[in-house]
Design a protein around this nucleic acid. Structure first.
Lengths: 71, 71
DNA sequence: CATTATTAGGGTAATTCGGGTA
DNA sequence: ATTGTCCGAATTACCCTAATAA
């Protein structure tokens, strides 16, 4: 299994946006920028992995002052 | 054997919908639009090939390039 | 044969997409 | 550089009743 774990719970852009308190458009931009993985429906709409979203949320909570930021 | 998919596991619209996190009706629309192959039961209900669905999920999946570079 | 869950079919809101702009 | 908003177009979600599946 390389691509997606079949059976992983997926979230809609609106749900992810609500979790991060941002506009759904912003979540779309994150996906386009490759900052978050996304699955597209045959119709072109995006779905996000709940596990990955939770990981990102946890990183926000961490907000380490270390130099882990982008180069 | 000419039939290339004899014995292929079939999924119901509800199961496919759960995998993509969409409404079962949406899966039906995909079939109607020819975006996904479907088999019809004698009663008119649709069934989908598990292998095709998995392939579709994999193709439409974008890995988030997380931890890509070997440390 | 009876029961319960799912699906088909149509119609109407809500969401998302994509580009461009502030 | 990142986010929010406006627009039109497309996709998806939820409403219903009847039929099929198990």
């Amino acid at each position: 299994m390389t691509a997606a774990h079949v059976g992983e719970r997926l979230l809609t852009p609106g749900e992810v946006a609500a979790l991060f308190r941002v506009d759904p458009k912003t979540v779309t931009r994150w996906a386009t920028a490759g900052r978050i993985g996304s699955i597209r429906t045959p119709g072109g709409h995006r779905r996000f992995r709940e596990s990955e979203v939770k990981t990102l949320l946890a990183e926000l909570t961490t907000e380490a002052t270390k130099g882990d930021g982008p180069a």
